[in-house]
């Protein structure tokens, strides 16, 4: 029983981590809070849903469509909304409000187009579980977890071993110094934003087989993603992973011990305490902003 709770918690945590990785990237590098993060997730889930129900494309294959599409959307949103706000007075406040407005737009767009119905797809993985040493693992979530680990490894490799990754890290640490070294900060910002949005698109694809889709599904994941990002530490991908796993475990345990609401309250309280005493997160090294 205990092992079962831990295993489900870890799988859930992996999914949460995947959802929050894109947010972490954008928050860590551009230093803006994207409140529409969960709504991009929602859009990707609808995309996957319709690609499957209308075109018959397997959710895992639709990654090949959703990911590049979200890169483009990311570039567009950055150019249109984020860039005009950067480097001005009260950038932080204005980007928060602008992205909140964007989230509002996306939610209501979904409501207009697809009504408030809960939708779900059935794939050949639906309802299936893998049994491993007496522990039941939901097939959909297991694959989501695998993808999450793969993405984390890939992202780590890109950030640590490639030239672009070095530039991204440089910009994230000191914009001015990076500019002086000849790095095109604007290009890195665009790239980071687009990639962050594409990553949450990917998360949306992976989630669709195991979660319901509805216009405000993003709100739920939004809060969770922010908790994880702050918990794990800004710009720390190991942190995001660990943060995701911790929250997954907390929810899994509290869900069994108490009620679902108390589980949420508990996660949020931990989030607040971390914000107060260690805003750089468990793994983050940057000082207080």
């Amino acid at each position: 029983m205990l092992l079962q709770i831990i295993a489900s918690g870890l799988l859930l945590g992996g999914i949460y981590a995947l959802v929050s990785v894109g947010l972490n990237l954008i928050f860590g590098v551009i230093k803006i809070v994207n409140l529409a993060h969960g709504d991009f997730l929602m859009m990707a889930m609808y995309g996957t849903f319709f690609l499957y129900t209308v075109q018959g494309i397997n959710p895992y294959v639709s990654t090949l469509i959703i990911f590049p599409a979200f890169v483009l959307i990311g570039v567009l949103i950055f150019r249109l909304i984020i860039k005009p706000l950067l480097g001005k007075a009260e950038t932080e406040v204005n980007t928060i409000i602008a992205t909140a407005g964007l989230g509002f737009v996306l939610q209501n767009l979904a409501l207009m187009l697809w009504k408030s119905d809960f939708r779900a797809i059935e794939t050949n993985l639906t309802g299936k579980s893998y049994e491993f040493a007496g522990i039941m693992l939901s097939a959909g979530r297991t694959w989501a977890f695998v993808v999450c680990v793969a993405v984390a490894v890939l992202l780590y490799y890109i950030l640590m071993k490639t030239k672009v990754g070095t530039h991204v890290r440089a910009v994230s640490q000191d914009t001015e110094a990076a500019t002086l070294m000849g790095i095109n900060v604007n290009k890195i910002y665009t790239l980071t934003f687009a990639f962050g949005i594409a990553l949450v698109g990917l998360a949306g694809v992976i989630l669709t087989p195991t979660f319901y889709v509805y216009p405000t599904v993003g709100l739920y994941f939004n809060t969770m993603a922010f908790i994880i990002v702050v918990l794990g530490g800004l710009g720390s991908f190991t942190g995001a992973l660990i943060g995701g796993l911790i929250i997954g475990l907390i929810e899994s345990f509290a869900g069994v011990m108490a009620s679902a609401e108390l589980a949420q309250v508990f996660s949020l309280l931990i989030f607040l305490i971390i914000l107060f005493v260690r805003p750089q997160g468990i793994m983050g090294k940057s000082a207080r902003v």
């Binding site: 409000i97 207009m112 408030s116």
Partner: peptide, 23 residues
């Protein structure tokens, strides 16, 4: 007629306002 349209427009107005008249 179209649930959500008014809030959709409202959101767009908001984003435009923030970009062009941030104060």
């Amino acid at each position: 007629q179209i649930p959500g349209l008014h809030l959709f427009l409202y959101g767009i107005l908001l984003v435009v306002c923030i970009i062009f008249l941030p104060k």
